[in-house]
């Protein structure tokens, strides 16, 4: 069952993680200053970024990527 971006955003961080594990497809991950890991997922009909604090493996945020340029950048990197 597909969720829309607002529906997805209405969930807590814990639930978003659950949804990503269930319905998402991990596409790409990158490190930022060796401190954070940013994981790029495709879920339903949109893309999200998950930001993880590497030290204690804590998920800090999961947000949809609505800026197309950023999406294209990821996809370009994937290619």
């Amino acid at each position: 069952m597909q969720l829309t971006i607002p529906e997805f955003c209405s969930f807590s961080l814990k639930s978003k993680t659950q949804l990503l594990n269930k319905d998402g497809e991990l596409l790409f991950e990158r490190k930022v200053y060796d401190k954070y890991k940013v994981v790029f997922y495709r879920i339903y009909r949109f893309y999200v970024e998950m930001v993880i604090e590497m030290k204690n493996k804590k998920v800090l945020r999961i947000d949809p990527v609505i800026n197309n340029q950023i999406v294209h950048m990821y996809i370009w990197k994937l290619q």
Binding site: M1, Q2, L3, E7, S10, F11, S12, K14, S15
Partner: peptide, 18 residues
């Protein structure tokens, strides 16, 4: 309570979609 509310919200959403 929050965890349960998330499950309830998800259930309501799916029932509506289906």
């Amino acid at each position: 309570q929050q965890d349960l509310q998330e499950n309830i919200k998800y259930t309501n959403l799916l029932l509506k979609k289906y």
